[in-house]
Nucleic acid binder design. Structure first.
Length: 518
RNA sequence: GCGGGUGUAGCUCAGUGGCAGAGCAUCUGCUUCCCAAGCAGAGGGCCGAGGGUUCGAAUCCCUUCACCCGCUCCA
């Protein structure tokens, strides 16, 4: 099965999401709210299925992880301790000539001085030492160029010049005098608790769910009676004032995370990091992401977050390029120590067997629910030619598909409807799965509609059903059909949803579906 | 925030001063109808908002709002 995605397909996916009820723009009737999205009936199912699958794999299938549901609002000191108040604010400098923006802490500046005459010749700026030094050369008079190596001006951090940025050249275009003063961008959303808006009631909407886990570390440890190594899992909303949101639901200011903080003995951290990277990578594959669209990437030292010792990203090949779905970081004992320090509470761990007390290291697999949902949508999107018509379909894994099966009478003939309703009721009996019913328009049209939603199987009631009490099941991906007695339907459908069409008994198959164009 | 782009039906878009349109989608009816079938019909719009020019504005001008792409990121 060959599928390719051009960048143009992103528009098709956005359009499909709107058209079929996966994702809507927030507050659309008021003109929309930037970078915020609502999930419609099908999107809500997809997200729910996704989170359930994550929870099953990381909590139920393991004996060393327990769940948590911490509040979005936390004591403001939490964010001082975590380092977010201090570090999560980026000062940005902008060049009014080339309109590029950069963070001062990523730029170096060199003062080029004529030492003999004690005269400032100019400044050079750039992103690394070599770049700055090479830019310094043209500023130097020939006689100094000879002794350049000896008098090479050692670059200093851009931050040292924050007071007078207007004299400096832009690190991108080297234009002098077009840099703005640094502006602070605090990425945390402020809010006020209580009816009175004063600084005493100021707190934040959490920028990550992780801190809810850290502050509950001792609570969970004592009540769950877990021993190291063990983890705490939670899904929930987080908020960041992203400077540049975009790419549909990929980077938004309100988003949902699925995070695990896995506590291990110091020294075992490197090993556990590797294991988690592997586990999480295969989780995406197990739900149908194509391997060629998934990769891991280790963070370079200089891109590590303030709390991390090591970090791997799991990246997906979106139409606009590779981008992060999940980060698996070694947060060391940074968070527990900081919270112990700021709260005055002892958050260390006592190992009964080794008779020693220490601060556990933390491995953090932290994924984005919305990003994963988008990746699964993009990866599942497909178009194929059947009888010169384009069939648009989502090849979603049955676990993720918003609708598990659709019950379709061949037509709206009054003799067919009671039998169809009967089958529909039968499949809904347990209430465990989302089953659709549709009798509008032609059967072909309804198949196509279900294909577009990613419904794995369609159950069709035809006139023969009235005689033999049997129905057909049609497979979304192969278009094959099988026929079986209605009483056996619930069991076989469950079987197919769990194991896929390959679990279908060959002797039941009745058709191979319409021919696909080459 | 800066630069560029776009706002017309649920979706994709045409319309550049003279009655607001097309395709698809949606809905209804008919047909023993298995892969977007046919026939007949229907609903759906303050042309993003406000102001101006004009006999007349979706169209020209001003203002404003929103969204998209890029720039810093990291779920």
């Amino acid at each position: 099965m060959t599928r390719s995605l051009d960048p143009v397909d992103m528009d098709k996916i956005v359009s499909l999401c709107k058209r079929r009820g996966f994702i809507f723009q927030s507050s659309e009737i008021y003109g929309g709210l930037g970078s915020v999205w609502d999930y419609g009936p099908l999107g809500a199912e997809l997200k729910r299925n996704l989170k359930d699958a994550w929870w099953r794999a990381n909590v139920y299938a393991r004996d060393d992880v327990v769940g948590l549901d911490a509040a979005i609002l936390m004591h403001p000191q939490t964010w001082v301790a975590s380092g977010h108040v201090e570090t999560f604010a980026d000062p940005l400098v902008e060049c009014q000539n080339c309109n590029q923006r950069f963070r001062p802490d990523q730029v170096l500046v060199s003062e080029v001085t004529d030492i003999q005459n004690n005269r400032l010749l100019g400044y050079a700026s750039g992103f690394n030492r070599e770049e700055v030094l090479s830019k310094s050369r043209p500023l130097l008079p020939k006689r100094m160029l000879v002794m350049f190596q000896a008098t090479a001006p050692e670059p200093k951090p851009f931050q040292d010049y924050l007071g007078n940025t207007s004299k400096l050249p832009c690190p991108f275009c080297d234009t002098v005098g077009q840099l703005t003063d640094p502006r602070m961008f605090n990425l945390m959303l402020k809010t006020f608790l209580g009816p009175v808006e004063d600084t005493a009631s100021l707190t934040y909407l959490r920028p990550e769910t992780a801190q809810g886990i850290f502050v509950n570390f001792q609570n969970v440890l004592t009540t769950s009676r877990k021993k190291l190594p063990f983890g705490i899992a939670q899904t929930g909303k987080a908020f960041r004032n992203e400077i540049t949101p975009g790419n549909f639901t990929f980077r938004t200011r309100e988003f949902e995370q699925m995070e695990i903080e896995f506590f291990v003995r110091p020294g075992a951290d490197d090993d556990w990091l590797t294991r988690w990277v592997n586990d999480r990578f295969h989780w995406y594959l197990s739900l149908g992401i194509r391997q060629e669209n998934l990769r891991t990437r280790r963070h370079a030292k200089d891109e590590l977050a303030h709390y991390a010792k090591d970090c791997y990203d799991i990246e997906y090949h979106f139409p606009w390029g590779w981008a992060e779905l999940e980060g698996i970081a070694n947060r060391t004992d940074f968070d527990l120590r900081r919270h112990a320090q700021f709260s005055g509470k002892d958050l260390s761990y006592y190992d009964d067997e080794a008779k020693e007390r220490f601060y556990p290291y933390v491995i953090e697999p932290s994924g984005g629910v919305d990003r994963a949902a988008l990746a699964f949508l993009v990866d599942a999107y497909d178009e194929e030619q059947i009888r010169s018509e384009t069939r648009t379909l989502l090849r979603l894994h049955p676990d993720l598909a918003p609708v598990k099966a659709a019950v379709l009478p061949l037509s709206r003939n009054e003799r067919l409807l009671p039998k169809a309703k009967e089958v529909y009721a039968l499949l809904r009996e347990q209430g465990a799965r989302n089953i659709d019913y549709d009798d509008a328009q032609s059967i072909g049209r309804r198949y196509r509609r279900q294909d577009e939603l990613g419904t794995p199987f369609c159950v069709t009631i035809d006139f023969q059903s009235l005689d033999d009490n049997a129905v057909t099941i049609r497979d979304r991906d192969s278009l094959e059909q099988l026929r079986l007695p209605i009483p056996q339907l619930p069991v076989l459908l469950a079987e197919l949803l769990n194991h896929g069409w390959s679990a279908a008994p060959a002797h039941l198959k009745v058709t191979t579906g319409p021919p696909k164009d080459a």
